[in-house]
Amino acid sequence: MSSSPISASTPRAVTGTASTVTSSPAQSLAKQETLLRATTEQLSKTVKTLNAKGTEQAAAPAQSQSSQQADGDKPTAEQAITELGTKYAGYVGSLGDKAGNRALTKAQEKTDAFIKANPNATKEQINEVAKKEFNKSTAAEYIFKSAVEKSMGDIMAKVQEAIDEQGK
């Protein structure tokens, strides 16, 4: 018998021995549907488990072990900086994608270094260092962005002046 896709509209002849139970195409389709639902449920449970472990870890599996939470009540550098980034999302967003991500990454690296150097640091100390590093890195990016924008504004004003001078 040649193999063909299983279809509810195409009945198949079932052959077997006395010990096998014959099933109709509808029963076969029902079995496949049940198997598909069970597989879907299992995949759903797996996705929920991954989400419970943290969306960040699932999205970035190459994250270093040091940024994972060592103690249940202490935040990791990633958690502390992500919390600050969420709290001040408008400010970080005003820096632009690249500058905002660069600032958050730099702050996370500095906070992670503090956690490595001080494994017995308290939650408050970690959050304080995270806030300090967040403020430093975002301020640096803001100052750089402002200087670039001012320089570009000055250049454009000079260009406009030159154009106006030529038009007279």
Rank of each mutant, 00 (worst) to 15 (best):
S3M: 03
S3P: 00
P5I: 06
A8P: 02
A8S: 08
T10R: 11
T10M: 09
V14H: 11
V14T: 04
T17K: 10
T20M: 12
V21H: 05
P25L: 13
S28M: 11
S28Y: 01
L29V: 09
A30E: 05
Q32I: 14
Q32F: 05
T34S: 09
T39R: 12
Q42R: 13
V47L: 13
T49C: 06
N51P: 01
G54E: 04
A59V: 07
A59G: 06
A60S: 09
A60R: 06
Q63P: 05
S64T: 13
Q65I: 15
G72Y: 11
K74Q: 15
T82G: 09
L84Q: 05
L84H: 05
Y88E: 05
A89T: 00
G90Y: 07
S94N: 13
L95H: 00
L95C: 03
L95T: 02
K98L: 04
K98N: 05
N101Q: 09
A107I: 04
E109H: 08
D112A: 13
D112V: 03
A113F: 00
A113E: 06
N118S: 12
A121M: 04
A121S: 12
E124A: 15
A130W: 00
K132H: 06
E133A: 13
T138K: 00
E141M: 14
Y142C: 04
Y142I: 01
S146H: 01
S146L: 14
A147S: 02
A147L: 10
K150D: 05
M152I: 07
I155M: 13
Q160F: 10
E161H: 08
E161P: 06
E165H: 06
K168I: 15
K168E: 09
